[in-house]
């Protein structure tokens, strides 16, 4: 290895770098933005837990030098809820894919958002199941080609930001990997927020999704993001569409709301007081 040291070296497990992701994949950019946010906020790494599910991006838990947790398929949010309630001092960051969070773990996600559990979810949306060979999933756009939709997808995709906002999240944003700076700022904002925050990151998957959709390299997919993305901060997430012509990104929701952990602690102290007085 070269003797030059990257400024983020202490935030990564050096023996695991270089990571396993393909060339042109955007997961590395998400990792980059995440560790930059941790560095900028100067958070104690012993107080951060990175939880990841199954999928390409699931390997992120092995690359960050925080405490980390690689969980069963779809259960990243459920495990994170448990960790947060057991030790409220920790900062819980769930980084997982669209298939893991919304197909297999869909119910965990919506109920964690409804309860407003104090966890921060970053979803890498690459429009398909990349790790298993590019099958179509709940976020594959209409008419897109994948290995299991060789004539085009006939199902309507999820609008993830709308789903999160409707379920009750306190902070909802969507960025692409090309908007690395805005994404970093957004992660920083989400990490300081109390309650459930959700950031969807649209990620290039040139090896599998791009290959079927006439975007063979990471640069082709990033250029599509550059051409199609439109920043609409504070707009209605219901209208935030993803089509080949238009990707609506931005910060959609940022509200204050008491978190589940706080309400639970308040209730516990109230009941304990009542019991003491009663006796």
């Amino acid at each position: 290895m070269s003797e030059e040291l990257h400024p983020f070296e202490t935030f990564l497990r050096r023996e695991m770098i270089p990571h396993i992701w393909c060339d042109g994949c955007g997961n590395g950019i998400i990792l980059n933005c995440y560790v930059r946010a941790l560095k900028d906020l100067d958070i104690d790494l012993n107080k951060v837990v990175t939880v990841a599910g199954i999928g390409c991006i699931g390997r992120i838990s092995g690359f960050t030098n925080t405490d980390s947790f690689h969980t069963t398929h779809g259960r990243a949010v459920a495990f994170a809820t448990g960790v947060k309630l057991a030790n409220p001092e920790l900062k819980l960051v769930v980084i997982s894919g669209d298939g893991d969070l919304f197909a297999i773990g869909g119910n965990h996600f919506i109920h964690a958002a409804r309860r407003n559990v104090d966890i921060h979810v970053i979803c890498a949306n690459n429009f398909n199941y990349g790790m298993t060979g590019g099958q179509y999933g709940p976020t594959t756009p209409l008419d897109a080609w994948t290995t299991t939709t060789p004539y085009g997808n006939v199902e309507h995709p999820f609008n993830l930001v709308h789903l999160a906002a409707a379920s009750g999240a306190a902070y909802v944003a969507r960025w692409t990997t090309l908007h690395a700076r805005r994404l970093t700022e957004s992660i920083k904002k989400a990490l300081q927020k109390e309650g459930f925050s959700f950031i969807e990151v649209i990620t290039p998957c040139p090896e599998i999704y791009g290959r079927y959709n006439k975007m063979r390299t990471g640069i082709d997919m990033m250029n599509w993001f550059r051409k199609a993305s439109e920043i609409r901060n504070q707009s209605d997430p219901a209208k935030a569409e993803i089509t080949p012509e238009r990707i609506v990104i931005g910060e959609f929701l940022d509200i204050e709301k008491p978190s589940f952990g706080r309400l639970l602690r308040d209730m516990t102290t109230r009941v304990q007081e009542k019991m003491r007085k009663g006796r």
Binding site: E9, H19, G26, G28, I29, L31, R36, A180
Partner: peptide, 13 residues
Amino acid sequence: GFCEAVCPDFAIF
């Protein structure tokens, strides 16, 4: 610093 921000492999700074 955009090259550093957009590099997925921590190979440039």
